[in-house]
Design a protein around this nucleic acid. Structure first.
Lengths: 145, 145
DNA sequence: TATTTTCCTATTGACATAGTATGAATTATT
DNA sequence: AATAATTCATACTATGTCAATAGGAAAATA
């Protein structure tokens, strides 16, 4: 029941791009340095985000990445589902084709349905913008104290 | 983000033992047949339940297993945590020693905390007795219709 | 042309999952 | 006492995923 680094790093990449969205393109190298993540591994992860249109890229010197839309538009759920696949804790709830023959009489299925709903309810109601806001408010606390 | 067969089978074993709790000891072979799970694999899983005291066993001919207490006493969460380990989706929330150095400034940590709480809230509020009840009520529907 | 960057794909080591296999220990039955 | 039935313990295996690492091609800028 773990979210892999792939999914967690993807969220951090999106947040990093949102926080540093000055108009310039942001290099993987810089994200990797800030987030303390392997450059080469990050390349793979950001490539997933890129293919899905969550970020857009410019190649070559002075190239890099930008977040592709308003941070409000990206929920944690979207990012995790993209990078991790379905967040349902059992395969039977992913698609019709994954259903087993016991589904009709499965006494435990409702638990997994409730669990899936609870998970979705959390991750679909937090956006990158929320994390940006949280970050900014914690920054200003540092100032005040 | 998947619950493995180990955890899911463990829940089904506990439910099976609760449903067939006539006073006789129930053989792995019978559970395996009803649940369509490999006998040998089930042995390993029920052995975990046994060591934790969730079931108790009698060896030898006519031996087998019984659920060790009132089905109300066993939540899905207890069973899953026993067989799967922590249900927290990130390692940082499992124990002090798993915390990384970025914990203090980690903007995503709150999401994982909320997610953990949501998961726990579901699995800790469903007991084996609830599943028994659900099973019995669906049985009686079959009668009526 | 040289440099910087993204893009693409292959490979690797470690680990977990989902079993299978073998047999020892224990108890009831005959 | 012998046999059969059962749990208990441990080792093994095949497959897959994770978390990278590695090497270079393609594109854009300077």
């Amino acid at each position: 029941m773990k979210i892999s680094t792939r999914g967690r790093y993807a969220v951090r990449v999106m947040l990093d791009l949102a926080l540093h969205n000055t108009g310039e393109y942001i290099k993987v190298k810089d994200i990797a340095k800030r987030q303390e993540i392997s450059e080469k591994y990050l390349e793979q992860i950001i490539s997933i985000l890129n293919k899905a249109g969550f970020v857009h890229s410019v190649r070559g010197a002075q190239g890099g990445y930008q977040i592709a839309d308003d941070p409000k538009k990206f929920t944690i759920g979207m990012i995790l589902r993209l990078t991790e696949g379905s967040l349902s804790p059992v395969a039977c709830l992913e698609s019709e084709s994954n259903q087993c023959e016991r589904c009709d009489t499965c006494e435990t299925l409702d638990v997994w349905k409730d669990l899936t709903a609870a998970i979705n309810n959390v991750v679909d109601n937090v956006t990158i913008a929320d994390l940006v806001e949280k970050h900014n408010s914690s920054i200003s606390y540092d100032y005040v104290i």
